[in-house]
Write a protein that binds this DNA or RNA. Sequence first.
DNA 1: ACTAGCCCCTGGGAGC
DNA 2: TGCTCCCAGGGGCTAG
Length: 288
Amino acid sequence: MPELPEVHTTVEGLKGVIVGKTITDVWSDFHVGTSHGKRQTIKNKKYFEKFRKLVKGAKIKSVERRGKNILVHLSNDYTFIVHMKMTGHLMYGVKDKFVHLIFKLKNSQNLVLSDMRKFASVTFCKTEGLEKHETVGKLGPEPLSKSFSAEKLLTQLQKRKSWPIKSALLDQTVLAGIGNIYSDEILWEIGIHPLSHTGKIPKNKFGEMFKVMQKILRFSIKHGGDSKSDYLNAFGKKGNFQNFHKVYGKRKEQCPKPGCRNKKGAIIERLVVKGRSAHFCPKHQIKF
DNA sequence: ACTAGCCCCTGGGAGC
DNA sequence: TGCTCCCAGGGGCTAG
């Protein structure tokens, strides 16, 4: 599912092909047969009509990632925000049978959002109002930004002292972009049990956590992201990070950590933490 | 302000 | 082979 490295990969791909292009029209069937609660997204028919008016004729000025969101900045000082959720793909010049949103571009190519499960959401706001946006405005720091550090990581996680570390890492207002796969892989690498109380983890562990977090995210980006579920990049191609998983989706398998190989009890387990699955090795991941 | 639990959705895998 | 059931999960929402 698209987390930081996958959204990054999509955005990097899109940058080269949609920036400078004019949107001539937009089509969607997202509002057909879907419910959306009270939230204002294009699944709401009236909101979609407003959205259509807004993007029609606008030029794409730039594209960027913020957390798991794709921000498309338009020449008319509006920005639209795409969240791919579980099975969304934002693609250029490619289509599949799950396309629910199409941006027609002046060069007669299409930017499409396909989503088998229709969980993806699209909203828009004034570009200068982004910091007040209901979700984007509340996102925590970017783990790969230059200004991020081990100290910041500690400060942010301390905001969820009483939570299990697994849940704290997944909170987008604490850190932007980490999801289920990368949180499992990070905790496995540094040997911390997912149920550890965030506030009880020794302070000196956070330096290592910071390094490992950046290492894993960068490694995945290098490999085009993770397509264990069904991620496809901007051109419909899969990533390779799924071939490097150490714990995620490895329940009942022997832990591959050097000290755990061939050891009894070093069998990957899965448990549910706040409704999310967490995979871990009971042998080397310590519970604080 | 918190949090547990439901909901959105559908392909794929397990079990029979 | 073909059916049914259950699972995956980000994050919004609601009831307590």
